[in-house]
Design a protein around this nucleic acid. Structure first.
Lengths: 340, 340
DNA sequence: CTGAAAGCGCTTACAG
DNA sequence: CTGAAAGCGCTTACAG
């Protein structure tokens, strides 16, 4: 391995001068700089980040606690984070978090690797695969407490996304706004008999969406059309909920709390021999990858995941520079396709 | 920050003894070990990986050159890599690679971060979004040459996945086998009039699949049913190719070279007022995430991406232990759903 | 514009 | 079973 000393010897200078050539080239006499650069080029020398980080006390590394890469929202956020981080010379270490002990370990790993800061992705969502939401929520809560105490103890810089923790700036998603955009769009398109498919988990974002749906329908004088069916917030749950809905009443439009449920709804509607959107319009939420693949292509509202990832990194870097931030939120936007 | 010296002072021992407590606890008198562990616990001490890596000359870090996280195959491979790596105490740095200069930079970053080894994911695939395959291929080739020379120069340990480079062990996907399983399954199910939807890029895996299709059809005495339509290997391309196919002939089954094309085919078939699989059976390839979301759920053949990621890490770790490997390949397997 | 010295936090290699 | 010394490759802080 080529070191800074090797370069110094070959260039007939001190290691310090080589260090300057790399970090503050403007402080060097052009001729020495040129000589050193030539030797760096020839030898293929690359500075050892461990040595640098050790002495600087900073790693130029961001840790991301994430979970299910298959969740489109996570993938979107993560892609944005990596893009902005690399652009700013930071390395991203992505740590997977499936359950409590797993998460503790991942956090520990990030600490050992001296990350400069951590971005915490929403943990609630990653527990969706568990059948008992209370257990999932309890695991999440336990970890969040642990996370908070560990971050305080090690003085870690943290930005959270859609996962408010006292003391850390959060970048929230605006689930209510998603609902608002969706229902208003349907009404604007002339629909009045609008039903809703929602998660059977009666709290948090799901409750907020359902409340908002009821509220808008009432405000618009459509109270008599209010009808909600619930199921797991996945494709099978969506299909079952839609089947239940159709057994009660055939609405002109369904607002689905997320795209997975909408995917299931599309299946159930197709199996019932009905057309989309001619017989029933389907409105999704979140803009998962699958929207383009559903038939018809799903009209939905994007959560703004890419924006959230981008802002998260920008704020983290801002904090490193001494800035402070309060909470903020990211704005959802309509994605028109073919299902409405 | 708590250091090993702090612990030593508090425990009344030398730093060396603390180091042993962490790395080779069995070599310590139980009473000293216990005393040290207690203090580590109290202080929340965590070893600094930079210092450790610097002196050990190893980082316990694996670099992964990947690209499009949205490609299900990549996400599968990456998830598997991270899982196995973490299990073995390795950290994964994922570097994004979109184009040539981007890729050079990413590789450089991995070198500066002293990765112990690199896993290279298939690069050909990530260029699919480019309209001109020759340009994409040329970019890929340029980078591969660069990659090879850099790895040789820095003596990097490399395992590639479906991207053969002389001197590095490769884990190949078996695209021909995918085709074989697909066509044989269709024939076994009683289909004889089987058409194919393929990429319009006439080389590599696409050519191999098409050749195999033709070959099996002939062997089985179904030569007269051979019919191939081509398009971009994405959903729109699949839809257009299927439309073209239907304008020529209405087969009883379509074998699609990948799931995206199958997704497009499903759209075209639905728009033509035909049912799946009653009128036309649709067979995908690769087992993308979307298979579960298509309607009907897509029957396909999995490429074996998870297995590939797992084997890649295992082999990399094996090489660190002094093992050597030749090339290998991963076995595709049937995923029966509803479209056949 | 350049350099000598000290030190970041750990481990290796040796000694006892 | 434990410790003193040296060094990994770099940068900081000072000196000139």
């Amino acid at each position: 391995m080529v070191t800074i000393e090797d370069i110094a010897r070959l260039a007939g200078t001190s290691p310090m001068t080589v260090s300057r050539a790399i970090n503050t080239p403007e402080k060097l006499k052009p001729s020495t700089l040129e000589k050193i650069n030539k030797i760096i080029e020839e030898t293929g020398y690359r500075p050892n980040m461990f040595a640098r980080s050790l002495v600087r006390g900073k790693s130029k590394t961001i840790g991301v606690l994430t979970s299910n890469l298959y969740n489109q929202v996570y993938a979107d956020i993560l892609s944005a984070i990596e893009k902005i981080a690399y652009k700013n010379g930071f390395v991203v270490i992505n740590a997977n978090v499936d359950n409590y002990s797993n998460a503790q370990q991942a956090l520990d790993m990030l600490i050992c690797n001296q990350v400069d800061g951590i971005i915490l992705l929403p943990l609630e969502m990653n527990m969706l695969h568990m059948n008992d939401y209370r257990v999932a929520l309890h695991e999440t809560d336990k970890f969040l407490k642990h996370f908070k105490s560990v971050c305080d103890r090690y003085n870690l810089t943290v930005v959270t996304i859609s996962q408010k923790i006292e003391g850390f700036p959060d970048i929230a998603f605006d689930f209510e706004k998603e609902c608002e955009i969706s229902i208003n769009y349907l009404i604007e398109k002339g629909y009045t008999d609008i039903a809703m498919l929602n998660s059977n988990y009666p709290e948090g974002l799901w409750k907020a969406k359902e409340d908002k749906y009821r509220c808008i329908m009432e405000e618009r004088g459509l109270a008599k059309h209010i009808l909600v069916c619930n199921g797991h917030a996945d494709i099978t749950g969506g299909r079952k909920a839609m089947e239940e809905l159709l057994s009660k009443h055939r609405p002109r439009a369904v607002y689905c709390a997320n795209d997975n449920m909408a995917g299931g709804a599309i299946q159930a509607i197709g199996r019932a021999g009905l057309r989309i959107p001619e017989d029933i319009a389907v409105m999704g939420n979140d803009d998962f990858y699958i929207c383009e693949y559903l038939y018809p292509r799903l009209t939905t509202v994007s959560l703004g995941a890419t924006q959230a990832g981008t802002v998260a990194v920008e704020r983290l870097l801002g904090i490193f520079e001494g800035q402070t931030y309060g909470d903020t939120s990211v704005t959802p936007f309509l994605c028109e396709r073919e299902s409405v």
